[in-house]
């Protein structure tokens, strides 16, 4: 297997590359991004690219990759300006698919890390979105529009290239030890914002299940679109209770104005798509991906609990996950040390 990972500089890209390195049947890993990988990688080859991935065509031809892991869709609009986000999500995806679908292309599998943000959050929504359902209101924010555009490109790509297995995974809000999202940032504050009079049902997926799901799609053939979210929904008030935080209300009217000082004071950036989630919440049906064979490690409540635990440890010792470094060193030792006996012979 020869794999191309986009967004190697992102949390997910680095994580997946690290995981791919541990697989024997993965011969080549090429990582693409504008920034350096976040985690130390051993045999992944890093290629520095433009944000719009214009050199992709040449890379795909030269490396003859058969699998593309597109982890580079930006979902958190607080990270980038609208224009940069559009460039990466829309133009980047377009160039990636153009390269993967070029005549004589070796690509046989494309896996995309998308988001349930695509469904929006509105009072007319069903309580659990199924994959074929569409959002009930036109998107207002740039990040949602760019995700819809990227999704449309993918749909066309799947139709035009029936010989390619296309897996689109839509992840709900992610929580975990390491990942930073508007929700994890909000839950780290001493008091957590809510919208007065609203207590939305929310779903979370653990970061380990995110990498797990992307990995599952890499090693199995699961064509189609799938929601990925922990089982069940938990109201925001209870999310805060599990994490052990008090809530402070924002007014239900002119909420974005009220949230603006928080952004200006660099306390917390709550973009419109997150505010509408805090108002109406969102649920998705996660059963099709389960039927495709994927097993979750965490439910929604389990994800929140795991996050709360890592947060408590962090506040106690000032480090997020001190065991991680240790494990990685051991892993490196097992993989590379001449002292370790492999396949019955020393190397």
């Amino acid at each position: 297997m020869r794999v191309l990972v986009t967004g190697l500089g992102t949390f997910w890209g680095s994580r997946l590359a690290q995981w791919l390195e541990s697989l024997d049947f993965v011969d080549v890993i090429v990582g693409l991004d504008t920034t350096e990988p976040r985690l130390p990688l051993e045999r992944t080859e890093f290629v520095k690219a433009d944000s719009d991935y214009s050199i992709l065509d040449r890379i795909v031809r030269a490396t003859q990759v058969d699998t593309v892991l597109h982890t580079h869709l930006v979902v958190d609009s607080t990270e980038l300006s609208g224009r940069a986000l559009h460039e990466i999500n829309v133009i980047g995806t377009m160039n990636l698919l153009a390269a993967a679908g070029a005549s004589g292309s070796s690509v046989r599998k494309v896996i995309v890390k998308g988001s349930t943000l695509l469904y929006g959050a509105n009072y007319q929504d069903p309580y659990f979105f199924r994959e074929p359902m569409e959002r009930t209101r036109a998107p207002k924010t740039r990040v949602e529009r760019s995700l819809l555009d990227a999704s449309a490109f993918l749909r066309d790509f799947a139709i035009d290239n029936p010989h390619v297995t296309v897996t689109k995974l839509r992840f709900s809000n992610v929580l975990g030890d390491d990942i930073e999202t508007p929700f994890s940032k909000a839950l780290r504050l001493p008091v957590v914002p809510e919208i007065l009079g609203f207590d939305p049902r929310l779903q979370f997926v653990h970061e380990d299940d995110v990498t797990g799901a992307l990995g599952y799609a890499t090693t199995h053939d699961v064509p189609g679109t799938y929601n990925v979210a922990g089982d069940g929904t938990v109201p925001w008030s209870e999310v805060c209770a599990i994490v052990g935080k008090r809530r402070v209300p924002l007014p239900p009217l002119l909420t974005s104005w009220a949230a603006e000082p928080l952004r200006l004071l660099r306390i917390l950036d709550l973009p419109p798509e997150v505010l509408s989630l805090l108002r109406y919440g969102r649920g998705v049906d996660n059963s099709p991906f389960k039927r495709a064979g994927f097993r979750y490690r965490y439910s929604t409540a389990g994800t929140i609990d795991a996050f709360a635990r890592s947060l408590r440890l962090e506040t106690a010792i000032g480090d997020k996950n001190p065991t991680y470094q240790y494990e990685r060193d051991v892993e490196t030792f097992f993989r590379h040390s001449p002292a370790v006996v492999r396949d019955g012979a020393t190397t």
């Binding site: 359902m133 679109t225 209770a241 439910s299 409540a301």
Partner: peptide
Amino acid sequence: EMDRPGLSLVPVPHEERLDLEPGEDLIRRG
């Protein structure tokens, strides 16, 4: 059929329910 836009809603029969997992009742506050 999943990727066809505007496809009307087809409920799929399934056995699995969104039930509480073991230990979940210890986590839940409400």
